[in-house]
C-alpha cells in the first residue's frame, strides 16, 4: 500500500497530519503557537513560523554537512587527516551570509513591532490590576460613577485540584467573572499591579504585558472573532501563581453595551444602597 503512494503524496499526508495536530484536532498534543484572533496575533504567528522554517533549514544544512563528515572522514574507513585549518574566503562568507539572513528576519519583525506600537484611539478602556492572586478589571468612564469594576478569580473547585474529583475540561482556566469586551472594536488595556509583578497574557490576542507595581503599561487589541479566550498569569507572583487565570469573553458590540449597562445598573444600585446606609 505504502509502496504505491508517490513520495509527494506521502509528504502531503505527513503535512496534513502535522497541521491537524497543530489545529488542535488531537487535543493534548498541541505542539505549536496559536494563530490567535487579532491582526497582531496573526502577524506574530507568521513571524514565528518564518523563524521556525529558517532555523530548520539552517539546522538541516549544518547538521547534514556534519553528519556527512562524520560518515566520510572516519579513521575506521581509512581516512587520512588533512592539515589545512584556515580559509579566509570561507570564513568571511559564513560571517556575511548570516548577517544577510538576520537582516531578512529583522525587517518583518520591525514592521510588526511598529504596528504593535501604532495604537488606535480606543472605544473601550479597561484597567487591569494584578493582585496576589486574582485580577481586577475596571471599565474606565468619563465620570467615576459610571465605572464598572470587579475581581476575577479562579473558579476551579479545590477538590478538583486536590484530585478528589475528576478534573473538568477547563481545569485551572475558569474564572468566576470573566472580562467582557466587544469584538471588532479597539480596546485599550491599562495594566498595573497592586503587590508584586504579574503578567497579563492572552495568547489568542498576542498580548503579554507585565503588571508592575507603580507603573501603568498600555496594550491595545482589536479582536476579530467573538468567543471565549483563556490565558494564565505569566510572571511568578508567589504561592498561587498557577491559580490566577484570565478568561475573556468577546461578544458583539451591542451585546457588550447591554452587558455594561447592566453592570452599571448593579454598581449604581449597590452604590446608592451604601449611600442610604450611610445616610441612616
Amino acid at each position: 500500500m505504502l509502496k504505491r503512494l508517490r513520495p509527494l503524496s506521502l509528504l502531503a499526508a505527513v503535512f496534513s497530519a502535522l497541521s491537524l495536530a497543530s489545529s488542535g484536532a488531537l487535543a493534548g498534543w498541541e505542539t505549536n503557537m496559536t494563530r490567535g484572533v487579532t491582526e497582531i496575533s496573526h502577524e506574530i504567528y507568521n513571524l514565528h513560523m518564518m523563524m521556525l522554517y529558517i532555523v530548520t533549514v539552517i539546522g538541516v544544512l549544518v547538521f547534514g554537512v556534519m553528519f556527512w563528515a562524520m560518515f566520510k572522514f572516519r579513521k575506521s574507513k581509512g581516512a587520512k587527516p588533512a592539515t589545512w585549518h584556515e580559509n579566509t574566503r570561507l570564513e568571511v562568507l559564513w560571517t556575511v551570509i548570516p548577517l544577510f539572513i538576520l537582516i531578512g528576519m529583522a525587517i518583518p519583525a520591525t514592521m510588526t513591532l511598529a504596528k504593535i506600537y501604532d495604537t488606535p484611539d480606543a472605544d473601550v478602556t479597561v484597567k487591569i490590576d494584578g493582585y496576589q492572586w486574582r485580577w481586577q478589571y475596571t471599565y474606565l468612564a468619563d465620570s467615576p460613577d459610571d465605572e464598572v469594576s470587579f475581581f476575577s478569580a479562579l473558579s476551579t473547585p479545590r477538590f478538583e485540584i486536590r484530585g478528589e474529583a475528576e478534573k473538568s475540561e477547563w481545569y485551572l482556566l475558569d474564572v468566576d467573572n470573566p472580562l467582557v469586551i466587544p469584538a471588532n472594536t479597539p480596546v485599550k488595556f491599562l495594566i498595573t499591579a497592586n503587590d508584586v509583578i504579574h503578567s497579563w497574557w492572552v495568547p489568542d490576542f498576542g498580548i503579554k504585558k507585565d503588571a508592575v507595581p507603580g507603573i501603568i503599561n498600555e496594550s491595545h487589541t482589536t479582536v476579530l472573532e467573538t468567543g471565549t479566550y483563556r490565558g494564565m498569569c505569566a510572571e511568578l507572583c508567589g504561592r498561587d501563581h498557577a491559580y490566577m487565570p484570565i478568561v475573556v469573553e468577546v461578544v458583539e458590540p451591542d451585546e457588550f453595551e447591554q452587558w455594561l449597562a447592566e453592570q452599571r445598573g448593579d454598581t449604581a444600585a449597590a452604590g446608592s444602597e451604601t449611600l442610604n446606609t450611610a445616610g441612616q
Binding site: E30, N32, T34, I161, K167, W170, L172, M232, A242, Y243
Partner: peptide
C-alpha cells in the same frame, strides 16, 4: 508554544 507558563506547580489538562 501551546501556552504553558513556567514556574507553575499545576497546569491545565
Amino acid at each position: 508554544l501551546a501556552g504553558m507558563p513556567r514556574r507553575i506547580p499545576d497546569y491545565p489538562l
